[in-house]
Design a protein around this nucleic acid. Structure first.
Lengths: 336, 336
DNA sequence: TTTCTCTGTGAGACCGTTCCCATATGAGAT
DNA sequence: ATCTCATATGGGAACGGTCTCACAGAGAAA
């Protein structure tokens, strides 16, 4: 393969001069510059990033680690969106991105990145303490996005889920709904937990009746599980004459909505359905889903910008960024 | 940072011996082996992949390049699936994956990968000739997945779209549908073109009436465009009393279905709707969408396996792999 | 004239590995 | 006794860049 030495010989200068021309720093006469650039152009020479990384101790690569038990991961309607945003931002900042997905939270996939000497790491979704400790030991800067653990000192970007839950409750209450059934995703996951808490806080604040019997706890935050739990609680649901369902994410809500529609329950005519996240499917469905929007685009962008600062040892103002979610009213909810 | 030299000093051997212990090749006494491994364990030493790549001229990285004009890319219900499969396969084969998405087909993003010296490249979606030429010049092995161009010699993996289109026609005809309206995605794209051709071939073979007036050509293969074109042809649709709609992908079909349902047309009661791809949304919707399944999982896996062969200079049997699609009958179609 | 500064250039160390080669030792064959 | 051969080890070049440093010439300031 072509290298800088070959360019140097062909243009009749030393490799030092070639290096200077390429980097643009240091002195190089116009004459030398022209000769070198001409040869580079002719040979279609591209500097070897591996060698560069070797000496500069900077790879200009960042790693994105997504842990998720269920498929899909990259094409996941929520995590995939964050990934998309990261890819776009990173590219505009001249970083290349290693993407690793894993189903168990093993140290292996973390090591995979660490060996490759990435400049920084973006960790998406919940992470266990030992993985964080492991990564921390390496001195590689990292940022957590939408993580579950509140490890002190770890820089993380999250959605203000509690507020979102509160907004959802306010919206449904405002429409006149008094009996609301909640499908709550795994409470070990920060988002689902806080969304429930926010919702509960509003209801309690309003002295509205909302207690443990109004909540179904799901084992997964999937469409199937939403459908399954709606089915399982169907008798209960009818006997208590609920008029609304709130799922702690869109897929859950969509699963519930599918069950309802299969049982000829009109949405939103008889029962209003509301989700959280605002993924692409939410707006596509008939009826389109009222939801609380999480700004995944900003999450990804901020993650890149902040990680870049960490990498360049610039000061980072905040250790925790919380993004405000936004109520998106569509067709699946209406005044009761 | 820790390096092999430091390990050598601490274990009282030369760096050559340490290298041998780590790689497992060459001679090393049990005694030396133990000492070295102990130090490695204590220091949590990980060999530097950048330095390794430097001398071995193998990075164990592959690049995935996805060009797509519209958002989303990574989270796209079809391309995202392929990406997911690639990530899983690559990881099990000990490759790390660079993911790059781009909206225009620029040489820049290709260069981005080439400079980083990936061992191989997987190109997803349509690629223009100049980009292919550019990459070809570098001698980096590459594979095209679901590409549009039939460049001779380029190894590619595609779905047998023509057969799929044919199966779709056979299915709808078999159900008794005689008047079928087709929403055809951009014909510059191989898949959409062949799906239409396969469909047309079956219809003509059956001497069924299916002509140009039964086809609407879309500008994009999106949900919105499917909706828009269904709307635009609504009068035409009704006047010709069509009983079925076939979209050349699921999103198009879903867009059309949304329009129909909004206009109180019962699906599949009055009009049957059929798509192509079988993405996650297709099974979620009510009614669930009858479609033709593309084996994205296998596409991704094969891409990795074949690329690995190319990288290791092993012979690759086929230059073009065509995967057989599979009819998936769900609730959106029924006997007319 | 001498000294200083700016411009321009090349030699060579270095980044962290791998791998080839030289060397050493003890056992078994000749 | 010498010759092989397998085992074991370390020295040092190489991979392809960056960067520091030494040095040289030219013009300006002393």
């Amino acid at each position: 393969m072509r290298n800088i030495k070959e360019i140097a010989q062909l243009s009749g200068v030393s490799k030092s001069t070639v290096s200077r021309v390429i980097s643009g720093s240091g002195y190089a006469s116009q004459e030398a510059r022209d000769k070198v650039l001409k040869v580079i152009q002719e040979l279609q020479y591209k500097p070897n990033a591996v060698a560069r990384a070797m000496v500069s101790q900077r790879t200009h690569n960042i790693g994105v680690l997504i842990y998720r038990r269920e498929y899909p991961v990259a094409s996941h309607p929520f995590y995939g969106k964050i990934l998309d945003a990261i890819l776009a931002s990173a590219s505009s900042m001249n970083y290349s991105v290693f993407v690793t997905t894993d189903h168990e939270m093993s140290l292996r996939s973390a090591d995979f990145m660490l060996e490759k000497r990435v400049d920084g790491l973006i960790l998406i979704s919940r992470l266990e303490q030992n993985v964080i400790d492991h990564i921390g030991k390496f001195g590689v800067p990292y940022i957590m996005v939408n993580g579950s653990t509140d490890v002190p000192g770890v820089i993380h970007i999250v959605n203000r889920d509690q507020n979102g839950g509160l907004e959802a409750a306010r919206h449904l209450s405002g429409l006149g709904h008094r009996r609301i059934f909640m499908l709550a995703g795994p409470q070990s996951h920060r988002s689902h937990h806080l969304r429930l808490e926010g919702f509960r806080a509003y209801m309690n604040g309003q002295r509205a009746e909302f207690g443990d019997s109004d909540i179904a706890y799901l084992l997964a935050s999937t469409f199937e599980e939403g459908y399954r739990m709606m089915k399982e609680h169907w008798e209960h649901f009818r006997s208590r004459s609920y008029t609304a369902v709130f799922g702690t994410n869109d897929m859950i809500a969509l699963g519930a909505m599918k069950f309802l529609m299969e049982h000829s329950v009109s949405v939103p005519g008889q029962v209003a359905v509301m989700g959280f996240d605002d993924n692409d499917v939410a707006s596509i469905l008939t009826p389109s889903l009222t939801t609380v929007r999480v700004d995944t685009e900003k999450m990804g962008r901020l993650a890149c910008v902040m990680l870049d600062k960490l990498i360049r040892h610039e000061p980072v103002e905040e250790t925790a960024v919380e993004l405000e979610p936004q109520l998106v009213i569509r067709d699946s909810t209406r005044r009761f």
